[in-house]
Design a protein around this nucleic acid. Sequence first.
DNA 1: GTCTATATGCTGATAGAC
DNA 2: GTCTATCAGCATATAGAC
Lengths: 197, 197
Amino acid sequence: MARKTGSHSRNTAPKVRDAALRLFARFGYAAVSMRRIAAEVGVQAGALYAYTPDKQSLLFELMNGHMKTLLKTAAIPRPRGDILNQIDNFTRVHIEFHLKRPDATFVAYMELRNLDAANFAVIEQLRRTYEDRLESLIIAGRESGLLTVPDSKLAVMAVIAMLTGVNTWFRDDGRLDRAGIVAIYQDMIRRALGAQN
Amino acid sequence: MARKTGSHSRNTAPKVRDAALRLFARFGYAAVSMRRIAAEVGVQAGALYAYTPDKQSLLFELMNGHMKTLLKTAAIPRPRGDILNQIDNFTRVHIEFHLKRPDATFVAYMELRNLDAANFAVIEQLRRTYEDRLESLIIAGRESGLLTVPDSKLAVMAVIAMLTGVNTWFRDDGRLDRAGIVAIYQDMIRRALGAQN
DNA sequence: GTCTATATGCTGATAGAC
DNA sequence: GTCTATCAGCATATAGAC
C-alpha cells in the first residue's frame, strides 16, 4: 500500500493497450492521436508515456503480442492424425482465433506499413513462421499422395488469404454461425488442395 | 494560347491524382499531407485546391475511378462459353487487372475506413456489384451441375479473397510470371468450387 | 502514476496578388 | 493556375509539481 496519491495504475496498462487497439482498428494508427487514446483511458496524454516510450512502440507491442499468441495457439500439439485432419484443424483454429480478435487481426494486417523498419522485420518473420507451418502440412500431404497441389507456396498464400478474409465479412448475427463457416471452409480448402476425399 | 503567366496546368490534374495515389498507397491517407502531395507534383499546397475541393474528395475520386474501371474491364462481353471457362476468365481478368494497378488496389482495400459515410456507401455498392457477378456465375455452375458449392456467398468471398491476395506477395522478378500464376489459381479455384474437370 | 503546462512543428484550408 | 501568407488547431513528446 505504498501507493502515492493519484496512483491508480493497477489497471491502466491493459486499458491503454485495449484503447489503442480499438482506436487503431477503427480509425487507423496515423489518424489516432495520443490525446484520443488518453481520453479513452481516462487520463491525460502525458500519462501514457509511463506505459510506452512512444506511439510506435505501442503499435509494435500490439502486433507482436498478436502474432506471438497466434503462433502459440496454432502450435500443432499432436503430430498424430492424418494430414487432412491436420489441415482441417489449421482451418478451424485460424478462423476461430481471428474471429475472436477482430481488432487485433485488422491492425496486424492494415498497419504493417506504419511499423518502422526494425519492427517490421520482426513481425514479418513471425508471419513467415506461421505460413511455413501450413506449407509443411501441404508438402507432407502432397508427398503422401493425399493432396494435388500445383505449387505449395501459392497454395499457402491462397489458403491464408481465404481464411483471413472471413474477418472482413463475418457478423455475429449473420446467416451462418462459426462452426458452419468452419465446416464450409474446411470443405473448400480440402478441394482447393486437391484432396481425394 | 490565352494562358496566363505561371499557368502550366495542362498536365497537373493527372499529376495530382498520380502523386496522391502513390503516396496514399505507400504511407496511408491519414499520414499523407496535402503539402506532401503538392511537393511531389511540384506545386505549392494551395494550388491543389484548383483540382479538388478537399482531401477527402481526392481519395474518393481515386477509389471510385478504380472501381468503375474494374466493373468496365470485368464486364462479361460474351455469355457464350461454358461456366467453367467464364470462371477461368474471371480469375484471369481479376488477377491481371489488379496486378496492373497495385497502388489503386491497395488504396481501394485499405482506405475504406477513411471515406466519409456517403462516399463509403457508393464504393460499397460498386464492390457488391462486382461480387454479385461472380456469384451469378457460381450459381449458374451449380444449377447446371458443373460445380459443387456448399454456399455460393461464402464461395464468392473465398475466391475474391484468394485472388486479391495475389497482390500482397507478387513480385515482378519472382519465381512465377503472371500467366503461370493465373493458371495455378484457375486450377485451385475450379477445385475449390468443386468443378468436375 | 498522474497532473498541468509547454516546446516545436505540422495540419487542412482560404484569401488575395499576379 | 499558381503563388505567398496566414488562420486556427492539433500533433508528439517532455519537464517538473504533487
